[in-house]
Design a protein around this nucleic acid. Structure first.
Lengths: 219, 219, 219, 219
DNA sequence: TATGAATGAGCTTTCATTCAT
DNA sequence: CATGAATGAAAGCTCATTCAT
C-alpha cells in the first residue's frame, strides 16, 4: 500500500473523526482492490475486508461500486497533480524543468503502479466515470498551463524550439513511461528480457530524457 | 467488429468444416467481448450469443474462459506481427523504415482499438496468460531482430546515431501511440479537448515522427 | 423428516438468533436431501427450498456442498452416539447390555433410515469427508471403550466368553442390522419377499439377538 | 479392473463380434465408473472414454444412463451367483457348506469392491432399477433354495439346529462381511485403526465363521 | 457400425446490494 | 455510526442427450 493524501486525516472535530477514518479506509482499500483486479474484477466483499469494515458502510458512504470507483479515481488524480505542483517547475530553467517533469513522471508511475492500473480500468470503461467529474478537469488544467508557460519561456530564450503543443508533449512524456511500466509483464514475456531490474529502469529513464530533450531543445 | 486474419477463411474449399468455423466464430466474438469489457467484465453468455453458438461449445473447444482469453491474445498478436512483416522494412533506407514503422504503429492502433484494450487486460492480469504461451514469444522476436538490423545498417551508413537499443526504441514508438489512443477518453475529459478528430490525429502522428526521427537521426 | 438433536432448539431463550435457526434449518434440510439422493444426486437448490431459505445462505454459512455434507455427517454421528450414551449400558449386567445395544442399533437404524443412506454416501466417497474431521473420531471412541468394559466384566463374571474384540463385535451388530435395512429394497426384489412388515422386523431383531448372544455367551 | 463374465466373449459370428465387443467394453467401463462414483456421480463421458468408444454408442446400445446402470447390476449379480454355483455346496456336509459360503462371501466382497458400491447405489435408488428386472429375481432364488436344502439336511442329521430361516441366515452372512468392507474407510476413520491389513482381514473372516457357525450348529 | 459437433437445462457458486436492528 | 443476516440475479461451467453424416 502506498502512502499518499488518502492517509492524511486533516484532524476534524472529534465526532466526525471515526466517520472520516472509515471513509478513508474504504477509499484506500478500494484503490488497492481496483488496482489489482480492475473494476469488474474487484469485489466489494474484499474491499470491506481490506478496510476491516462492514460492507454495508461502503454503500452508506459511496452509494455503489461505480461511485466508489469514481471517488478513487478522483483521489489518485488529486495525488499526482499535487505531487507535480510540489516540483515548482516554474522556478527552473525550461530544459531543466522538462527533464525534471520527465524524471518525475517516470518515478511517480514506478512508485505508484496502482495509478497505471486504475487509469487502464478507467479507459476500458471509456472514461465514463471521469466525464461526470468536473473536479478532475479543474485539477488537471493547471499542469498544461504550467507546461505551456515553460515552453513559451524556453522559446523566447531561444533554448527550446517553437511550435510545441504542451498537450502533445505531456502525452508523449507520459506515454514513454506508461507503456514501459504498464505493459512490463507482457513486454518481458514477449521479448524474453526482464524490464524491471534497477539497471533496466535506469536505462529507460535515461532513454526517455534523451528522446524528450532531443525533441524540445533547439538544434 | 474489425477485419483481420480471423475473418479470412483461408481454405477455398466448397464448405469449411463446421468445427473450424465454429472455433473461428467463437474467437472473433470473444475478441470483441474481451475488448469491450475486459477479462472479468466479459460474459461467456454474451460471447456465445455474439457467435450465434451454444455456450457449451466454447467450453468444448477452449476449456475455460481463461484459455479462451489466451487464444484471443495469441491471435491478435499474430495479426499485428503479420501486418508488420508486410511492411518489408528491410527493403527501405533506415530512416524511412523507422518513419514507416512509426506511422504503421499509429495507424494499426487507431484501426484496432480492440488490440489496445486486450493488451490492457492482459497487463492487468500480469501477463499470466502470455507467460504460458511460447507461441507469443516466437512471434515477437523477429520484429526486434528486424529493428536491430535497421539500426545497425543506419549506423554503418552514418545516417543514424549509434547505441540505440531496439527494444527501447520499439517501446517508445508504441508508447507514443498507445497512451494517446488508449487514454483518449480520459485525456479528452481531463484536458477538455477532443483528441479524436482527424486533425488531432494528423497532428499526433506528425508529432510522433518528429520525436522519434529527431532521436534516431544523427545530428 | 426425522426427529433428532437438530430439531431441538437447545436454548430456551425467547427467540433464537436467526443465524442459528437458519444454520439449523439448512442442516436438517441438507440431511434429508443427502439421505434421499446421495452426495452427487443432492441439489443445493432443493436444500434451500426445503429449508425455506435463500440458496446463497448455504454458501454463506457452509462454504460449499462438500463442507455442508461433512457438517451433516458430524451431526448424525453426534446424534447416534448421544442416543447410545442414554442407554447407560454400564449399569446393566453384561448380557443384558449387549442385547440392549443390539436392539437399540436395530431400532435406531430402523427409525433413522437417513443415517444408513448418509453412511453409504460417505463410504462411496471413501470417507474422505470424515477423515478431515477429528470431531468424529473423538465422538466414536467412547462407544468402543464402553463395549470393551462390558465384555471384560462379563468375562470376569464367567458369563461371557473371553477374547472378544469389541470393534469386531460392534461391526457385527451393526452389520446385521445395516445390511437388512439398507439393502431391503434390493433384497425384497431379489428374494420376492417383503422384508418391511412388522412381523418381518420382529423376526429380524429376534434373529439378530440369537446370533449375537449365541456368540458372546459362554456355552 | 476385475475379471469376470463380462470379459468372456463367447465367439459369435465375425460380423457381430465388434458390436459385442463394444457392448462388453461399455458394460465394463460403466461398472467401474458407477462403482467409483455412484449413479448420480458417474459421467457418461467418462464411461465412453474408459471404453475407448464414442459416447453416442452408449445410447445406441443401452438407451440411457439408467438402463445402462440396470444392465450393469444384472451383470454383477449374474457374476456372484455364478461363482456361488461353482462352490457345489450341496455336495458338502452342511456345516462345511455354511462355512464355505461364509468364507466365499467374504472373499468375493473383498475381491469385488465394486460389487459393494454398486449395491449401495442400487439401494440409494430404492432398487427401482432391480424391480424392473425379472432376470435378477430368477437369478437369485436358487441360492436361497440351496441354502434351505442345506439347513434342512443338517437339521435332519441332528447337526444343525432347527427353525433357521435361510433368508435371515444369508442376510446375516452377507451383512457381517458387507458392513466391515463397505464402511471400512468410515470405520477406520472413526475407530482410528486400519481394518484393511491382511491380519485384520484374517481376524474378520475367523470372527465371522465363529459367529455364524456358533449360531447354526446345534449345541 | 460408428463418430464429432452441438445443445437445453440445470448445476454449483458468486456478486452487488438490501434488510433489520 | 455500524453490522450480521439475507437475497435475486446471474456468473462460469457441466451434463445427459441428440443431430448429422
Amino acid at each position: 500500500m502506498v502512502k499518499n493524501s488518502l492517509m492524511k486525516t486533516s484532524t476534524p472535530e472529534p465526532r466526525q473523526r471515526d466517520a472520516d477514518r472509515s471513509q478513508l479506509g474504504i477509499l484506500v482499500a478500494a484503490r488497492d482492490e481496483f488496482a489489482e483486479h480492475g473494476l469488474a474484477g474487484a469485489r466489494v466483499d474484499r474491499i470491506a475486508e481490506r478496510a476491516g469494515l462492514n460492507k454495508r458502510l461502503i454503500y452508506y458512504y459511496f452509494g455503489s461500486k461505480d461511485e466508489l470507483f469514481l471517488a478513487v479515481l478522483e483521489n489518485v488524480y488529486a495525488d499526482i497533480r499535487a505531487a507535480e505542483k510540489e516540483l515548482h517547475l516554474l522556478d527552473m530553467p525550461p530544459p531543466e524543468a522538462i527533464r525534471k517533469l520527465t524524471e518525475f513522471t517516470w518515478n511517480y508511475y514506478l512508485e505508484h503502479p496502482e495509478f497505471l492500473t486504475l487509469l487502464n480500468s478507467a479507459n476500458l470503461h471509456q472514461a465514463r466515470h471521469l466525464e461526470r467529474s468536473k473536479r478532475v478537469r479543474e485539477m488537471n488544467s493547471p499542469l498544461i498551463q504550467t507546461l505551456g508557460d515553460i515552453l513559451e519561456r524556453g522559446r523566447k530564450d531561444g533554448i527550446l524550439r517553437g511550435g510545441i503543443d504542451p498537450v502533445q508533449l505531456y502525452i508523449s512524456i507520459a506515454g514513454l513511461a506508461y507503456f514501459y511500466l504498464s505493459n512490463n509483464h507482457t513486454l518481458s514475456a514477449i521479448f524474453g528480457r526482464d524490464l524491471m531490474t534497477r539497471k533496466a529502469h535506469n536505462e529507460r529513464v535515461s532513454h526517455m530524457c534523451d528522446v524528450i530533450l532531443g525533441y524540445v531543445l533547439r538544434d
